[in-house]
Design a protein around this nucleic acid. Structure first.
Lengths: 205, 205
DNA sequence: TGTACATCAGTGAACGCGCGTTCACTGATGTAC
DNA sequence: TGTACATCAGTGAACGCGCGTTCACTGATGTAC
């Protein structure tokens, strides 16, 4: 920690970090520009040296989240290694583990109300993240006989929705949350059954 | 509309209605006790004749939502008529159509941060709603050979998660939302593939 | 039917609060010569 | 190496705002006799 007297050193990142931890603790509502500043040991006015305002700070947090997320997704996909099937499953799991490992980023991205259209850069990185999942779906779909092959974007959407639902309902302490099963198992088994339904996994095992 | 002078007539319900429409328009964050009062043509202080405060108002809105939801789910389940399979599918669809038809309630229930444990009444009605889905899952599970039968709560959780994910990601104008498919189709096809994976639907059709 | 009175459901003024944002400022840092 | 100066990154006071909540109050309604 090289925080020194008058000049902070790296206020920009400190503010993002504060934003993330507040958002994680209290939800996107509970985040306050003033409080993030306070947490960084700085006057609220100082924030305006680095961001246009409250919204802009959250958007930056979301942006950084998407970058991490995109990296993780691409790493999970790994160009379809070892098999298209395994790679596809891995992207689904990557979604959940991202949500677990970066809860603040996750909330900033998906629950803060920040539009993906807010800036071209944000849009680009979000597209990159989803691109990995879509590529996985396309590769996988080629294992299905062409005449009974649903559009690959549909797989991607199904898996995305299932993962998001598991995260929102069972992985975070929101509503009733007497999670009957660990979220990992729930997602794993859900994806398994789903892939069987597509005829991509043997019905016996 | 029998709203008369000094006495409102039915302020309690008018406040709930105002709360719902605000929540629907602006999200759970954008809801203000004062504004709900204003919308009902009444002083903020008047709210305290009927509710303990802001939180309490939202909780009432959520409660009413759960009641509608529970009714819809039970109706969709219809004691397993005409078949266990059809009834199960119908409860999944009911989730989505509830979210469409009652967006304000939906947000109050699932995104406002109101805990289901807030009051016994709230907890009871939420349990009733989920009960329909669970009963549908139990009935359905009996069509699967006992030795390869996963726990029925797991189906219920999968379908719930998928439905919730579809709603959050593709049915409401939140993040990127260039929904590639209509949400109804997405959910329908997702459930279809899933049930095939369970061996409950013939793999050909 | 009329009157007295209790109860109920609102008012409106006031409070303290923390927010986001602006502004002129100043202390610290970096650079040219 | 030393000095002058531009630039940068903070301060702190101030602003107007709308919020949730409280309080003593008052107008409207319902009821007993």
């Amino acid at each position: 920690m090289v925080k020194r007297g008058y000049h902070h050193g790296n206020l920009r990142e400190a503010l993002v970090a504060g934003c993330l931890s507040l958002i994680e603790k209290r939800g996107p509502t509970g985040f306050t520009l003033s409080e993030a500043a306070r947490e960084a040991g700085v006057t609220p006015a100082a924030v305006y040296r680095h961001f246009e305002g409250r919204e802009d700070l959250i958007a930056e947090a979301a942006f950084q989240g998407y970058e991490i997320f995109a990296d993780l997704m691409e790493e999970a996909y790994a160009d379809g290694k070892p098999t298209d099937l395994a790679a596809f499953e891995a992207t689904g799991r990557a979604y959940l583990s991202f949500a677990n490992a970066y809860p603040g980023h996750y909330v900033a991205m998906f629950e803060s109300g920040v539009s993906i259209q807010r800036s071209p850069a944000l849009h680009a990185v979000a597209t990159r993240a989803m691109g990995a999942l879509e590529r996985a779906a396309v590769a996988l779909s080629e294992h299905i006989p062409a005449e009974k092959r649903p559009p690959p974007q549909m797989f991607a959407a199904h898996i995305w929705a299932l993962s998001h639902g598991v995260v929102e309902l069972f992985s975070r302490g929101s509503p009733g949350t007497k999670s009957p099963f660990p979220p990992e198992d729930l997602l794993e088994s859900g994806i398994g059954i789903y892939l069987r339904g597509l005829g991509l996994v043997a019905p016996d095992e």
